[in-house]
Every structure is written in C-alpha cells, then in structure tokens.
C-alpha cells in the first residue's frame, strides 16, 4: 500500500512537472522578449513591436557584410528551422531553431546573447540590434 501511494505520488509529480516544463520555458522566453523590447524602445522611440515577417527575412537572408561562407542564418540552420542544422565548418549537428521542434530554444538569456554575439558578426558583419533579436525569436517561436 505504501509502495502504491509513493508510486502515485511520483506519477502525480511527473504529471505536474510535465505540464509545468513548457510553461516555464514559455515564461523564460517571454522574459527574454520583454527585455529585448525594452532595449529596442531605447534604441528607437518609434519601435512598436516585434515582427515575425522581419524575423523570417533576417533568418533567410542572404546578407552581405559577414563571412562569405555564412550569408544567412539559414546557411547552417537550414531554410526550414524545424529541421536540425549543421555547423558550416565542423559539420556538428545543431538542434532545430523553431520552438515547435525544440521547446528549449530561447529560454536561457545568457546563451541567447552568446549566440547572437557570435553569429550576427559572422552573418551580418555587425552586431544585431535588439529589434532584430526580438524579430528573430518572434519568427522562430511562431513557426509551426
């Protein structure tokens, strides 16, 4: 009986954890977007919100100014962000960028900033603006 009740407790815990995980991930992503929105507002007083279409254009490129081998995010992450990508040089597999395929995406602010700080110069030849970062995350969060 005791074993049964502890098994039930474990099952209940699993159920709540299962339900809580995506919610926590969504909350973390929302917090990151909120911070970028505040920064975008400071960068441009005319900022009215993030836009998935602009994010898609940024993702697909092609851009000039960065490295010749990486003219777009899609170069490594593939034009379909629900698929796994591949590091341009090493061939290392990259987990999908679309949240629908990879719910852990954009849930750690430090990691998100690290990737933008490395990849924007490689693709664009400059840092991304807060608006671009928010557009990018908005596109990949909404992509089915």
């Amino acid at each position: 009986m005791k074993r049964l009740s502890s098994a039930c407790a474990a099952a209940a815990l699993l159920l709540t954890a299962g339900a809580a995980l995506p919610a926590r991930a969504d909350a973390a992503r929302d917090a990151i977007l909120t911070a970028y929105a505040a920064e975008a507002q400071r960068e441009d007083s005319g900022f009215t919100g993030f836009d998935a279409a602009r994010g898609r254009a940024l993702y697909m490129g092609p851009h000039t100014g960065g490295k010749a081998e990486t003219p777009a995010c899609a170069t490594c992450h593939t034009p379909d962000p629900t698929r796994s990508g591949q590091h341009q040089k090493t061939g290392r597999s990259i987990d999908p960028m679309a949240v629908s395929a990879n719910p852990a995406r954009f849930t750690n602010a430090t990691d998100v900033e690290k990737r933008f700080s490395r990849d924007c110069p490689a693709v664009l030849g400059r840092a991304c603006t807060a608006r671009e970062k928010g557009d990018f995350i908005t596109y990949l969060t909404g992509k089915p």
Binding site: Q86, H87, K89, T90, G91, R92
Partner: peptide
Amino acid sequence: RAKSFADCQA
C-alpha cells in the same frame, strides 16, 4: 563522410 577531420563522430 565528414566536412572535416574535426568531425570525429562521422
């Protein structure tokens, strides 16, 4: 098989 020799797992 691999993009480079850095891709050991290939």
